[in-house]
Design a protein around this nucleic acid. Structure first.
Length: 779
DNA sequence: CAGTGAGCGAGCTTCCGCTTGACTT
């Protein structure tokens, strides 16, 4: 009898499952979706009830062909795609393409790849859930409509010529970054003075002790000073001690999102790097599937984990837990991310060890005992003013899960200096000696800029995007340059410190660096203006709750309570009206902002988007005097640039004077600052500031780089902007940014080439690009 | 690339969500 064919999504899964099922089944993978909407068009017949037009994309044709052939000669075909909306749809598409009857074809699901789970799944096949398939179609079609209607509006309304895009997920992701940036910009930091006292004394055994205690916060320096003043000659006594037990609970096992966050905090990985390494670990069989939103662990896995904990740390370290997902949008088709074998603590994947270790520890910790603590809070009285100070200490009574793992924290979650040190043994009534009392100025902090991973966290909270798309979404908004990932240097800030020892109060000023950022997401001006535009015209789609709202509708479709095309239609009609309206009536996107009047010409100075990005402009094209333009520096923004900073930009290009009877100019080009002299350009190193460099400094740079250049230049056709240059492999032609080869036989006589011959050579090179030699070995 | 920078516009671009290989020296 012919074998049955079982189709899953992932090839790595296929291998494992084939082993489990044995002789009767041949297990193949379809590599995810095998059909999609037409690519070049909307792909939807809107007038015909939004009937989708599906095609098999080029890169899936090979797989589909193979599956078709196998299906023909196999016994029964079983569909075992993931148990979620997308998986159900993939199975339906498989039916369509392989000519299977969706009403009789066997459909099975499982959440873990273990022998019992799979065998029981095979014993209990069900049929395709067409309601769920329709929910997926609604999701797909709605996303296509939003993306393919909004993007063209941007092409029309944005003068920049680039591949702009908008979509349900990406545009909201950018909005999150934009709004955070504005929160930071409008944030005003408030300072206060916090009192800390450093005490010494003796414990019951007459051993010397020392610790610190904290007092009130004062909103200004004079109140803080008054307080210190009032503590002069005071007697300090321990007024009260309270001891409270406390416990800490381990975090749930990893999902895609939490893995990305933790790898970012602890290992400094970007989300793409994390996923790439996780993929390698998965393919090598070291971990379970890495694109998941589930926190649950299979039964077999639980046994493996608890056995491992018992052996390594003892039975009292075991505490099993069934974690539940907080997130309603989770579809839980897989397990949490965990090692496949807990007894394996090392892997042989290059760069993968650290990530594996993180997964291993997190998994172990999740089934380990709570950590038990003892928190001590001591109140210290001040005799002179009746105020009290508080000293806190924490003692770990039982390590529990902390033995292997402690979750990292995001910047904005960092609690105020959580004192996790121990308090020395003190007794109520005991008097203490004040060594020093300090009132230090501190400042409230603006919200933190997002990292890739903290953005993923936010998106997940809003139910926007899926585990398989978090990393690609971030790549998209970076590629579109709506958002930039970069560092920011901190700024110096002064703060005051009042200190009192031996009843003498001193007032010092110190300085610190604040606001240093590493690998953070900043919105570009493009991101700012496009977001404003979209929010203004498409508030509905840009709303943070939009996805959650339509997910509710998809659920109703999945439960057969709503028809998918009427749901899409309800969205489409008002949306399309707004699209048409916006196309016709909306102004071009400029993000224009007036920032002042140029005193020299008394013309308006504006900051706005230009063809080549953000710029400042004096005057207008309609003026008699020509307008002047300057592009913004990398860290400047239309929204925040000051008048003075803008005027500084107009100092370029700048004529430094003459050298060898030719002007020396300094300016900033696409690739940074440069000097131009005698029609040649010399890029300026970081050591020189184009706004301050003078002629004396510029001349040596020109001379030095010119000699270097002369050694390379054989001939220059100035009018045509073509050069013949000497390279490591011989002579070649350079036109603009592109290089073209000079044929071997003409290498020696290249210096005598005429412009006509050179042009012909370039034409020939363009017409005959180097061929990709695909040599297939003949067996 | 480059002493500019607008706008004009031919013809191009684009979505989200599933999955992995891969044109070449």
């Amino acid at each position: 009898m012919a074998k049955n064919l079982l189709i899953v999504e992932s090839p790595a899964k296929a291998k494992t499952i084939e082993k489990i099922l044995g002789e009767d089944f041949e297990v193949k993978s379809c590599f995810g979706h095998i059909r999609d909407l037409e690519k070049d068009d909307m792909g939807i017949d809107i007038k015909n009830n939004f009937m989708p037009r599906y095609i098999v994309p080029e890169d899936k044709q090979k797989v589909v062909k193979e599956l078709k052939q196998l299906a023909k000669k196999s016994g029964e075909v079983w569909l075992a795609t993931d148990e979620d909306r997308e998986g159900e749809a993939i199975s339906w598409h498989l039916c369509e393409v392989l000519g299977l009857d969706p009403v009789t074809t066997k459909r099975i699901v499982f959440h873990e790849i273990t022998k019992p789970a799979i065998q029981s799944a095979v014993k209990n096949p069900r049929l395709l859930d067409l309601n769920l398939v329709n929910a997926q179609q609604a999701r797909r079609i709605l996303d296509r409509i939003v993306g393919f209607e909004l993007s063209p509006i941007l092409w029309r309304k944005m003068s920049m010529r680039s591949n702009l895009s908008a979509g349900r997920v990406q545009s909201v992701a950018v909005r999150i970054i934009v709004e955070r940036e504005r929160e930071i910009n409008t944030f005003t930091s408030v300072s206060s003075f916090k009192v800390t006292a450093y005490f010494t004394g003796k414990d019951v055994n007459q051993k010397s002790i020392s610790f610190k205690a904290e007092g009130a916060k004062f909103s200004n320096v004079s109140d803080a000073e008054k307080f210190l003043e009032s503590c002069k000659s005071a007697i300090y006594k321990v007024a009260d001690i309270q001891v409270k037990p406390a416990k800490k609970t381990p975090a749930a096992p990893f999902t895609t999102s939490t893995l990305q966050q933790e790898a970012s905090r602890k290992l400094g990985y970007g989300v793409s790097k994390t996923m790439l390494l996780a993929q390698k670990l998965y393919e090598a069989g070291h971990i379970t599937y890495m694109r998941t939103d589930s926190v649950s662990l299979g039964e077999t896995a639980m046994n493996d984990i608890t056995a491992q904990i018992s052996t390594a740390y003892g039975k009292n370290f075991v505490q099993t837990r069934k974690f539940k997902n907080k997130n309603e949008s989770a579809q839980e088709a897989h397990e949490a991310i965990r090692p496949t074998y807990m007894n394996q603590s090392k892997v042989d994947i290059a760069d993968g060890q650290k990530l594996y270790e993180l997964i291993w520890k997190r998994t172990m910790a999740s089934q380990m005992a709570d950590a038990e603590l003892e928190k001590t809070i001591a109140k210290i009285s001040i005799s002179t003013n009746g105020e009290t100070l508080t000293a806190q200490g924490e003692v770990l009574k039982f390590e529990g899960f902390l033995k292997v793992y402690r979750e990292g924290k995001d910047e904005d979650e960092e609690e105020e200096e959580n004192n996790e040190s121990m308090l020395p043994p003190i007794t109520v009534g005991q008097s203490l000696t004040l060594k020093e009392m300090i009132a230090m100025e501190g400042f409230t902090r603006p919200p933190a800029r997002y990292t890739e991973a903290s953005l993923v966290k936010k998106l997940e909270e809003l139910g926007i995007g899926r585990p398989s798309t978090y990393a690609p979404t971030i790549s998209t908004i970076l590629k579109r340059t709506y958002v930039e990932k970069r560092d920011k240097e901190g700024t110096e800030r002064k703060y005051r410190v009042l200190s009192m020892s031996n009843d003498i109060i001193k007032n010092k000023q110190e300085s610190e660096t604040t606001g240093t950022e590493k690998s953070k997401l900043f919105p570009s001006d493009l991101g700012l203006v496009v977001t404003d535009f979209l929010v203004q015209h498409f508030e509905n789609v840009m709303d943070y709750g939009f996805t959650a709202k339509i997910e509710g509708n998809f659920d109703e479709i999945a439960h057969g309570k709503m028809k998918w095309n009427s749901m899409v239609g309800e969205f489409y009609t008002p949306f399309k009206t707004e699209v048409d309206n916006t196309m016709e009536t909306a102004e071009r996107i400029k993000g224009e902002r007036e920032i002042g009047i140029d005193p020299a010409s008394s013309k308006k100075v504006i900051a706005r988007m230009g063809r080549y990005g953000p710029m400042v402009q004096i005057g207008d094209v309609s003026d008699e005097i020509k307008p002047r333009f300057a592009k913004l520096k990398q860290d400047q923004s239309i929204e925040t640039i000051t008048f003075d900073a803008a005027m500084e930009l107009f100092k370029l290009p700048r004529n430094l004077g003459t050298f060898e009877d030719q002007d020396v100019l300094v300016s900033i080009g696409k690739f940074g600052p440069y000097i131009s002299h005698n029609k040649q350009f010399y890029s300026l190193s970081k050591d020189f500031d184009p706004y301050v460099i003078n002629l004396e400094e510029a001349i040596p740079i020109v001379e030095e780089k010119r000699t270097a250049k002369n050694e390379r230049t054989v001939k220059v056709f100035e009018k045509e902007k073509i050069q013949i240059l000497k390279g490591p492999y011989g002579l070649y032609l350079k036109k603009g940014l592109k290089n073209y080869p000079i044929p071997k036989e003409q290498q020696d006589t290249a210096a005598d080439l005429t412009i006509e011959e050179v042009k012909q050579m370039i034409e020939y090179a363009i017409a005959n690009p180097p061929k990709k030699t695909s040599r297939k070995k003949k067996s």
